[in-house]
């Protein structure tokens, strides 16, 4: 479909929760420094797949999978989950800053990894990239919990950026936010794709259309259609996709 650099690639990937299969034969390519949106009705497996990209599903006791997820020619499923997570960061549905200061939230990741850098620079740099610097530069030592929901979410993005990952996964990052904060996050995603590959799961089709370059439509654990966002939303080739984006179900 495209000639661009593929960083993340699932190959015949299946996910099971106990007996129940959640993802069927997934073959999906994620392109470098682009935003890929995954849409679909709730329960279609979009978050499940996203959480597999950085092995967050390992915490689910009944989780099981086969196939492969390739990242830099290696199979993520065979790597150390901690290593994977340092390269592939994640932003969650609900802002989840640690109950620490803003400053310590940012440096927590690099610090536990023993990375010797200038932390002040790292904090400033990360916060600037997350478009939060101007709002918090005078109160870096205040608790992150004092921030508004939208600011907290941007702090979580900054925290992820501080790890200098290749890929940032976003699991419905705006679903807990008000419209104004949502717009800020969406603008931010647009800036971030200059440096990072972003995969975003969203139930909001307008959002997918606004921020993404590619869109994948999932239905009941299967990839129904995957294409350039413009094309998928204007001329979907699949009937189910068309029904979904025109609001006939979901």
């Amino acid at each position: 479909m495209n000639q661009e650099n593929i960083v993340l690639k699932t190959k015949d990937f299946n996910i099971f929760y106990g007996e129940k299969q959640a993802i069927f034969n997934m073959n999906l390519d994620i392109c470098e420094k682009k935003v890929t949106a995954i849409i679909g009705p709730s329960g279609c497996g979009k978050s499940t797949l996203l959480r597999s990209f950085n092995r967050m599903n390992d915490f689910v006791p009944s989780f099981n999978c086969n196939g492969a997820i390739e990242f830099e020619k290696k199979n993520i499923l065979k790597l150390d989950p901690m290593e994977v997570r340092t390269r592939i960061g994640m932003v969650f549905q609900k802002p989840n800053p640690f109950p620490k200061s803003i400053y310590n939230n940012i440096i927590w990741g690099p610090k536990i990894h023993g990375h010797k850098v200038n932390y002040d620079e790292l904090v400033e740099d990360s916060l600037k990239k997350a478009a939060l610097w101007d709002e918090v530069k005078d109160r870096l030592n205040e608790s992150a919990l004092e921030l508004s929901g939208g600011q907290q979410q941007r702090l979580c993005i900054a925290r992820t950026i501080a790890m200098k990952p290749e890929v940032i996964l976003m699991d419905e990052p705006c679903s807990a936010l008000d419209p104004k904060s949502t717009i800020k996050i969406e603008d931010l995603i647009d800036d971030l794709k200059n440096d990072y590959t972003i995969v975003i799961v969203t139930h909001n089709m307008q959002q997918a259309a606004r921020v993404s370059d590619y869109t994948a439509f999932f239905y009941e654990g299967e990839l129904i259609e995957f294409d350039y966002t413009d094309k998928l939303f204007t001329k979907p080739s699949n009937k189910q996709t068309e029904d979904y984006i025109t609001g006939r179900f979901g």
Binding site: N96, F98, G109
Partner: peptide, 8 residues
């Protein structure tokens, strides 16, 4: 999850 996602 936030902690684990940073590779801790």
């Amino acid at each position: 999850d936030g902690g684990y996602a940073l590779g801790a």
